[in-house]
């Protein structure tokens, strides 16, 4: 067991009560509504939740890339390495973005510019953040491409994105993400993933890079499989809030929020026969008109009267494992 002081020192990112709202013609969409979590050096955090639960908005808030308007970070703090990103000027934030905290948006079709070569795009990412001669920029670009296992990297530098396979594009996007050795790397996973074999190569690569550099990783995903394979800790999001977080084994062995439990019971397993999957009825709620109380109430098999009246308070289940549900109180 590490001492309290040691863990404190290891915290590289601390998000506290982050709220990001959007003004829309239906009213205020509370896309992220009071999120808090810590991330330690070398740790991998998975953020899971279904479409629209606020995963991407959380990460765009960390990067300060929320379109304003219609969006606005209403409150909270984002402490990265002792510095509150929400207090930085735009210029200061430009410096931090990409160099200390980087986002890999896993839609390689849109995150690479089709009209520039691979070499161009990787060196651009390096040149923005480091004041080094052009020659060494090119050398560094080549070396990150080699690091992400791009075969014949030298000649690939002159290729355009469309000349690469999906798996290679994904690795180039990864190369751009790690090019400035950030302390925090966020990977926003696509809904429909690449082929399993290509995905396995990519995940193995990310793990290797993490072991080399001790970067902290955040995986945004729908897929509990990715969480099981990659993550140390998990935060489950529903309707703009984290409803449960804990170590990966806490979440898989003792899911405590009914939503987490239901999600885990609704995915088929490759290793064993499942008689019948649990099916979560209904749809997630729309965020512009959330009823008071627990947003999962309409779909919850344990719903009680109190659930519809008041948002559940957070309960600690064990150290580092908590959930917000009236059933736990």
């Amino acid at each position: 067991m590490v001492t309290q002081a040691a863990t404190e020192r290891d915290v590289v990112l601390r998000v506290n009560d982050l709220r990001t709202y959007f003004q829309t013609r239906w009213g205020t969409v509370k896309a992220v509504d009071g999120i808090s979590f810590d991330l330690r050096r070398g740790e991998t955090l998975g953020i899971v939740g279904e479409s629209g639960s606020g995963k991407s908005v959380t990460m765009l808030s960390l990067m300060r890339l929320i379109p304003m308007p219609p969006g606005r970070i209403v409150s909270g703090s984002i402490m990265l390495d002792g510095e509150d990103l929400l207090q930085l000027s735009d210029g200061e934030m430009n410096r931090v973005r990409g160099s200390k905290i980087a986002l890999i948006i896993q839609d390689p079709m849109t995150s690479l510019n089709p009209v520039f070569t691979i070499g161009n795009q990787v060196s651009e990412a390096i040149a923005i953040h480091q004041n080094i001669p052009k020659r060494s920029v090119m050398e560094q670009a080549l070396s990150v491409l080699r690091k992400v296992n791009i075969p014949a990297a030298e000649s690939r530098m002159r290729d355009y994105p469309h000349q690469l396979s999906g798996g290679m594009r994904q690795r180039v996007v990864g190369a751009i993400g790690i090019s400035c050795q950030p302390q925090v790397l966020i990977a926003d996973e696509p809904t429909t993933s690449l082929d399993v074999t290509i995905q396995a190569q990519y995940l193995a690569l990310l793990k290797e890079l993490q072991q080399d550099s001790n970067v902290a990783l955040i995986f945004i995903t729908h897929d509990f499989g990715i969480v099981a394979k990659m993550c140390d800790r998990v935060a489950v999001m529903y309707a703009g809030r984290i409803v449960e977080q804990g170590s990966v084994r806490d979440i898989f062995n003792r899911p405590s929020h009914p939503y987490t439990e239901a999600l885990l019971a609704s995915v088929p397993r490759m290793e064993e026969d499942v008689d019948r999957l649990y099916s979560i009825e209904g749809q997630p709620p729309t965020l512009h008109d959330l009823p008071p109380g627990c947003p999962f109430a309409d779909r919850c098999q344990y719903v009680m009267e109190r659930c519809r009246e008041e948002y559940p308070t957070r309960t600690t289940i064990s150290e580092g494992h908590d959930a917000s549900c009236w059933r736990l109180i």
């Binding site: 190569q201 499989g225 394979k229 898989f252 490759m270």
Partner: peptide, 25 residues
């Protein structure tokens, strides 16, 4: 076998044969 070892596990303690295919189809 390669497809199965590349598939994502359903639990963090699942032990999988490490057989990552190199290259692409």
């Amino acid at each position: 076998k390669a497809l199965m070892s590349a598939a994502l596990p359903s639990h963090p303690d699942t032990v999988q044969e490490e057989m990552i295919l190199t290259g692409e189809v």
